[in-house]
Simulated scan of single mutants.
Amino acid sequence: MILQLLREWPPGYGGVERVAHELALVWGGAVYSFDAQPQRRCEPDPLPVSYSRIRLPRLTVGRLLIPLPSRRWWTLLLSSQPLHGHLPSPGVLALLLLARLLRPRRRVTAHWHCFLERSPGLSGRLFALYQWLAQATLPWLSAVITTSPVLAAELARCGCKTDRIHVLPCCLSAEQESVALALPERQPAGNAAMAVLFIGRLDSYKRVDWLLEALAQLPQPWRLDVVGDGPKRAALAAQAQALVGSGAAVCFHGRLDEAAKLQCLARADLLVLPSDRCNEAFGIVQLEAMAAGMASLAFQRQRSGMGWVGQLEQFPWSQQPAALAEVLRQLQADPENRAALGRLSRQRYRRLFHRSVWSRQLELWNCAGSIQA
């Protein structure tokens, strides 16, 4: 039994919550959270939950969640069970360090999901301070999991001992994987409009605006399905209306359940994840696309593994924003290559990200004693 601690309410729709959810299904321990978005508790869980979820009282100061002492707080800190916390979160980091200080022999580990991109102003300086503290704290913990070789190398470069770092890529749920892999292989679409898919929160760093601008430069018809919601939806819809000509179509679906999302995956030719910050460190939606048999395009960032996830050696490109329009033009002009890249992407998924591979890697972590007390 391994306890987990994170900021959000799992399983949720974000990568951190989905990772914590899959680990909880295997580890069986309770999951403690600060319940950062309590309104989501009124929505049905997107994935079935079989483990205990416990909310910790907290004080909200802007975006900062400060855990408050309570019976649940003390139960978590004084337990002898292994504790695994998900970063980034100053509150989670503080409780991991407290747990380690109160019980020095306890296994206390961290899941390093991403490096934070420093932005201008006070918030950027605070992010930088948190990240410095987090990196300074890692040596005090028993071990750290991260999601890609790219992040592992960066953690090592920042001073974390390599023997304490374990790479465990994200995974899909068993049901998601099964239904995606069961979809038929993509066939060359001939003269049909290239179908592009985006899945994610419609926020500024996701850069759907860049995707729209790149698609608007294509010489032939295309269509774009946008799955997800967020604060930029209205602005993006207005941009799409201004850019789209008679030969293209953009559909904003909002947040979809798994069955409706699968339909979008089944009819798409290509997924694009145009995020421009290392806050997007993996992009689990790329796994959904690859398992469904389509290629995934993402940018290469120094402190992010998102460019590594769907990277195909048979289709080299710079993975930089300036090249996106040209790459889309190449893929639009060559339906047979699009279909071939989809098959290669599914092969890469089976080789690196299949649940059986994920389970073996997690078992190695457990057997090495990296988590167990």
Rank of each mutant, 00 (worst) to 15 (best):
P11E: 11
G15L: 10
H21K: 06
W27L: 10
A36L: 11
Q39E: 15
C42S: 07
P44S: 06
V49S: 13
I54H: 06
L56T: 03
I66L: 15
L68H: 08
L68V: 15
R71H: 14
G85A: 10
S89A: 05
P90F: 04
L97Q: 05
L101K: 01
L102N: 07
F115G: 00
S119P: 00
S123L: 10
F127I: 06
L133F: 13
I145N: 07
I145Q: 06
T147P: 01
T147N: 15
V150I: 12
L155Y: 08
C171K: 12
L172D: 04
L172I: 09
A174I: 05
A174D: 14
L181I: 05
A182C: 06
A182T: 04
E185P: 11
E185H: 07
Q187G: 07
V196Y: 03
F198E: 11
K206F: 02
V208E: 04
W210Y: 02
W222G: 03
D225T: 09
R233F: 13
Q239N: 02
A240T: 04
A240D: 13
F252T: 01
D257P: 04
E258H: 05
K261H: 02
K261C: 12
A268D: 12
L270C: 04
V272C: 01
E280P: 12
G283L: 03
Q286H: 00
Q286K: 01
M290G: 01
G293E: 09
A295L: 14
Q314V: 15
F315G: 00
Q319G: 10
Q320H: 07
E326P: 00
V327A: 10
V327P: 00
A339I: 06
L341G: 02
L352G: 08
S359N: 09
W365R: 09
I371Y: 11
